[in-house]
Amino acid sequence: MSGRTVTEAWVRRFHPSPDHAWRLACFAHAGGAASAFHQLSARLGPAAEALCLQYPGRHDRHAEPFLTEVRLMADQAHEALRAWRGPDERPLALFGHSMGAIVAFEVALRMEAEGLPAAHLFVSGRRAPSTHRDERVHLRDDNGLVKEILALGGTEPEVLADASVRKLILPVVRNDYTAIETYRCPSVALLDRTPVTALVGESDPKATLDEVGAWADHTADDFGLRVFGGGHFYLADRAAEVATAVTEALSVGRAAPVEALSAGRAVL
């Protein structure tokens, strides 16, 4: 495919505007799609324009084969974002939630390798890549997979009660859980010129504060940590506060937030 075709396949702009000072590429969680960031895109206001990444195998890309490894996702996403990078383009930052945080991290590594580092990396709801849990959700049967989804609170029970919906959703979730649960961080995975801000829900069962704080070991630049009320999908209820945290960090050019949010707290 041509570069432009790849870009069109991957990037969704729900609120396009030539007046935004920044662009923020957003990477969704396992089983998620570009639409997961529609609310955040709207909240970013005049500060940043969201470029929401659409993974193959879902929504309008449902006919395409899944990407079965995180690094394959990062390779293609990195290629798709080329059209939005360069000396004449607005600064490009990255935001990833859960699995998307690791995909965004891998994209940030590729951007630095090419000499065009991301303006900022925001990692949400995900422990640092150097931490490890022996998770095997992708090996469960369908009922076990449904139990995991419901436990995280990202999907209403009545949705998964529909057999036809489960038939559409579960293969996507299983593929993505396979990709993230088999991912292993390279020992040299360190960002030299990319500030990192980690965001997490205080009751997230998938990421403790210590595990999230370990993201500091993956950047030689500034690091900041923001903790919000809520669980793994805190972002659904805290989009306005997250948008404020993102725009603050972008405006000051460093990871550590200037002050705590009313609905979240800063850990510096």
Rank of each mutant, 00 (worst) to 15 (best):
H15T: 15
R43Y: 09
P18C: 11
L170K: 01
H38D: 12
P87Q: 15
Y234A: 07
I180Q: 11
A243G: 08
W10H: 02
G45N: 04
S98M: 09
E69R: 15
R127W: 07
A207D: 08
D19S: 14
F37R: 08
T155E: 00
D75L: 15
S203R: 13
L209V: 12
E135W: 13
A34D: 02
G231F: 03
E248K: 05
E114I: 11
L170Y: 00
R12P: 09
P257A: 11
A236I: 14
L109P: 08
V258T: 14
S2H: 05
R184Y: 09
A220L: 00
E114G: 10
P171N: 06
P56A: 03
A189C: 07
G264M: 05
P157D: 00
Q76I: 12
L51E: 10
E181S: 04
F27G: 05
W215A: 03
T194N: 06
N175I: 11
S2P: 11
A104K: 06
I180T: 14
H29S: 04
C26W: 07
V200E: 02
A236H: 14
A118Q: 01
W10R: 03
A119T: 10
T182P: 10
L250W: 01
H78L: 15
G213R: 05
P18H: 10
E181A: 13
D237P: 07
P16H: 07
L250T: 06
R166L: 05
R13K: 15
G96V: 13
S251P: 06
A30L: 05
A214E: 00
G86H: 13
A216P: 02
L94T: 10
A9Y: 04
R226P: 03
